[in-house]
Amino acid sequence: MESWEILLQQVINGVSLGAMYALLALGFTMVYGIIELINFAHFNIFMVGSFIAMWVMQLMGFTGQSHVLYGLPLTAMLVFVLCVTMVATGVLGALIERFGLRALRGVSGTAPMITTIGLSYILFNVILLGAGADTKNYSNPMPNIRWEFGDAVLHLRELILWGVSLVLMLALHYFVRRTKMGKAMQATAQDQEAARMVGVDVDRVVIITFFIGSALAGAAGVIFGLYYNYTNFGIGYTAGLRAFTAAVLGGIGNIPGAMLGGVLIGLIESLGGQYLAVRWTDVIIFSILVLVLVFRPTGLLGRASPTKS
């Protein structure tokens, strides 16, 4: 492989990872933006999402790599699996907020955050005990269509995953910028008490934020399974921490920042793995986390404009 081919291949890989991290980072950033809480349960909502999608596909009769779909059936199936998974993880996130975290809202200190860690472990162990510790082979109905650029390869599945991620992010952007509930979210993030005073039902905004963030984590779980062709109960930890780093890198609380941070972390992972060494990937990524926290705690994009007057 020529050096440019290696670079191109790693950029393709990095963008794929980045698309997934970005979806996952959005959930962290949205929840933090609204109630200044780092939701560590988010890691394992992502993991649960990858299992739900796997089970849905199994129920539909897809096992292993043997069933390949094309065109409309493929589209319909992916949309269906995504929708079911996203609704399921969204409801899971909403339940966690309602019954796990709402009572702790307004409690100062670390109690709510520690609770999210506990909830994360519950999800982790439920899947471990219910589905077993072995790595599951993921059914994958995507055809092996590929384009070659020299020795660099772009698979159809990568294009599809980029597309899914892009559509979801655009939909989120539209929702937050243009809809009434989106405006209520922005208002709540900027000044919760003022939002209440103009008649925003803050409890509703918070639970919907958890729903959306968790639904996006579910989508990221589907992407993980379809990209790597496997899942297991432990995938939430590594991907979750990287996505969290992406959210901090982009500026925690900042939605475009999470998208940018996600893609950057994906690229850093793939390029760092190529040009330094795979075993240094985590060192690089978490060094970035530390450096950002020390030198630019507001992240790359930070707050878009002046803070509270």
Binding site: K183, Q186, Q190, D191, A195, V198, S305, P306, K308, S309
Partner: peptide, 26 residues
């Protein structure tokens, strides 16, 4: 009942127009 809170409490990262529209939220 509509408040004009102490220290204004506008939504700082929204435009003036968006702030007005938030007033009509209900």
């Amino acid at each position: 009942i509509a408040p004009v809170p102490e220290a204004r409490r506008l939504f700082p990262r929204m435009t003036v127009l968006e702030n007005l529209e938030m007033g009509a939220f209900t």
